[in-house]
Design a protein around this nucleic acid. Structure first.
Length: 198
DNA sequence: TTGTTAGGTGAAGTTACATCA
DNA sequence: AATGATGTAACTTCACCTAAC
């Protein structure tokens, strides 16, 4: 349905940066299907620079902007359009790759955090001494070890409130800031206990 | 007001060519 | 010189939106 089918079929785009091609650029390529192989334009440095500059200002162009830019670059509007489409795609791909890398780091961090906490749980269990020594800031009462968690940034043990099940042995972390629901934002630690806690 | 149609556009995926190691 | 990898211009298809009717 889009302009791609039919309209642009067989419309080979060869850059002819001579100025006299404005006319010929508008007409369809007379090569039939299966005709001569399509040539591939390589944009000049200056063209790329201008396109990039324009892209920084607008991620997409309206018809007038497209026309003007094409005129300025001595390209067809369609070429400018295609360039912007591909540029947006590259931009998105890059962002996705960065997000993927971030998630991998986050996963690694969580794995490490989990490992430390498991170790701590084991240690606390092994101690088998009476009541834990951590005092709740709220009730002023000693807290069970299972309510404790550790901030991986400051390495301090903090409480995992609200506390409901004293028999629970696994330590859960609140996932309200899961990065999958964010868009490449950083940070997750300290989410439950901001400035004052650490 | 609602439904239909055509045209325009963007996203996603693919193809094909140019370039380079 | 031949070749495989890579980058990217160009293409295809689909979905969505909007204006005209």
């Amino acid at each position: 349905m889009g302009e791609g089918s039919g309209l642009m079929r067989g419309l080979d785009i060869n850059q002819v940066p001579s100025g006299a091609e404005e006319e010929s650029m508008e007409e369809e390529d007379d090569s039939p299907n299966g005709g001569p192989p399509r040539k591939k334009l390589r944009l000049t440095k200056e063209q790329s620079r201008l396109l990039e500059e324009s892209f920084k200002q607008n991620l997409s162009l309206n018809p007038k902007q497209k026309e003007d830019l094409a005129m300025e670059l001595k390209l067809k509007p369609r070429q400018v359009e295609v360039w912007f489409q591909n540029r947006r795609a590259r931009s998105k791909l890059k962002h996705t790759e960065m997000e993927c890398a971030y998630l991998k780091r986050w996963y690694g961090s969580l794995t490490e955090q989990n490992r430390r906490l498991q170790k701590e749980v084991e240690e606390l269990r092994a101690m088998k001494v009476g009541p834990p020594t951590v005092i709740s800031p709220h009730s002023r009462e000693p807290l069970p070890a299972s309510t404790l968690t550790m901030c991986p940034r400051c390495e301090r043990v903090t409480t995992n409130v609200p506390f409901k099940d004293p028999t629970r042995t696994t330590i859960t972390t609140t996932a309200t800031n899961h990065p999958a629901t964010l868009s490449a934002k950083v940070p997750i630690f300290h989410s439950r206990h901001p400035s004052t806690a650490c």
